[in-house]
Each structure stands twice: as C-alpha cells, then as structure tokens.
Design a protein around this nucleic acid. Structure first.
Length: 142
DNA sequence: GTTGAGCGTT
C-alpha cells in the first residue's frame, strides 16, 4: 500500500495536495488563537524552576535541597560544578512540582544569606524540554 | 585553603 493510498483513505489528500487549502487552514487556526501576549508585554514570570546564584562554594545539593524543601516538593536540585577543580560554580537550579511553590520559595529565600552569602534567586531561563521558556509567539505571517 | 557575575555535563 502506497503512502498516497493511505493518505487518500485518511482523507488528508486535499491538505497535502492543495497548498492553498493547507495555508488557509493554518492561518485560520492561527487567527483563532488568543493573542494574550502582545509584543512588549513582560514574559511569563510563572515557572517552577528557580535559578539560584550567590551560593557559597561549600553548599552542596543536599543542603540546598534542605533549604528549599520546606516550600514545596523539590523535584530536582542541580549545582554546577567546575569540571576540573570540582568546586561549585556558585549557582544552581531548584525545580519544584509547580509554579506556586517556586514563587513562594523565591519570595522567601531571595536575599537570605546561606553560609555567609546572600542568595540571588530568579526564575530560570534557558532550555528545558517540555517547559515553555520561550514565549510561543506565533509570528504573524503576512 | 585564592576568585564572586552568572542561566544547567542529563
């Protein structure tokens, strides 16, 4: 059975063969999407991942977990270490099970000193597969 | 036994 036959039986032939239909369907779908993120609006601050900097070099993932586990369920804690020296790079990431816990922990722990150094906490940027870090801005096709 | 802004070896 050829691909064409399969597509035909799935009634997808018009979409595949007719570029106009495909384009119109896509732009129609895009037009119906709510545009609640106008350009210039602040990026979504809600996130369940915290970027924690200002860590003392003697803070390990265990003590960091203990420091944050009272605000919610800590999914993952990661401290960046130098490959060669093995010493902490002074920052890491704390994952919570939901955004509210993360925000709560951030508001409570940001600026608090831990082992002599004030913590600098903000919501994590960067890449995590599955989390919407980049604003899903459907660039309006002209 | 040093250093101090930052966005991550899966």
């Amino acid at each position: 059975m050829t691909l064409r036959v399969i597509l035909s039986r799935l009634r997808l032939t018009p979409l595949i063969h007719d570029g106009h239909h495909l384009r119109r369907s896509l732009s129609a779908a895009a037009a119906k999407l709510p545009d609640e993120l106008p350009p210039g609006a602040p990026a979504p601050t809600s996130d369940s991942r915290l970027f924690v900097a200002g860590l003392s070099w003697s803070v390990d993932e265990r003590s960091l977990t203990d420091a944050f586990s009272s605000f919610g369920t800590v999914t993952e804690v990661r401290i960046m270490y130098d490959k060669n020296s093995g010493r902490s790079r002074g920052f890491g990431f704390v994952h919570f099970s939901n955004d509210n816990e993360a925000k709560c922990a951030k508001d409570a722990m940001d600026g608090k000193v831990m082992l002599g150094r004030p913590l600098r906490i903000s919501f994590a940027l960067g890449r995590v597969r599955g989390a919407s870090v980049i604003v899903p801005r459907l660039s309006t096709v002209k």
